[in-house]
Amino acid sequence: MYEFLTGPALWLTFIIFFGGVVWRAVWYVRGLDWQMDRVAYGYHNDLAIKGALKSILHWLLPFGSRCWRLKPGFYLLFFTFHIGLLLVPVFLIAHNVILQERFGISLWTFSPRVADVLSIAMLVSAVFIVLRRIALPEVRILTTFYDYLLILISTAPFITGLLCRFQVGGDYHFWLLAHIITGEIWLIAVPFTKLSHAILFFMSRAQLGMDYGIKRGGKYGRGLAW
């Protein structure tokens, strides 16, 4: 089972994940329409590139946008959640050991202790994100079952990963398999669900940045203002 999950199933997962993400990006760009979108794609490239980069960077940098500065509490939850979500799977020593065994390559890794802290922080922030959904009327009205399902899909690999690491109940093997399966489900879900924002966040932000850069104030050095 372990061999299958980390062999053919993993390959298939990566193919679906990377292929799906590329397909989403290509589909997005192919569907852009200069006249419907009212953005002169391909013209005023200096303004377009500057607008796109600013639009992305200001939302990635800590408190880089006015919205984040107005909502510092949610900002911290949101960033803690995403930093854990993105860094732990890539730089976890256990994952890199597998990479080394299979492909003879390995990335820089952080200590298991750091991974523990990031994972637990990520899960704690997820709990607060859920509580926020329930508590605030303006978020509750938007929330559907689908939103909770996606949080579950995204956090399940971390929950099972921690249970595996600390061998809760003494059943290391069970949690390991659960961890691999939930991890693969998570990756496969990305292209097919709104987790596709992993790539579409960048596309959408770049597009709006180009809109502002090309026609909504970019030439005056204004536009999307932070």
């Binding site: 852009l32 978020v139 938007l142």
Partner: peptide, 23 residues
């Protein structure tokens, strides 16, 4: 014919976070 990738993406990836409320 007219609802293309930009609108469909916006409608789909909305995280339902509610940050737009106060704006």
């Amino acid at each position: 014919k007219t609802c293309k990738s930009r609108f469909r993406t916006w409608l789909e990836i909305c995280a339902h976070c509610g940050l737009c409320a106060d704006s």
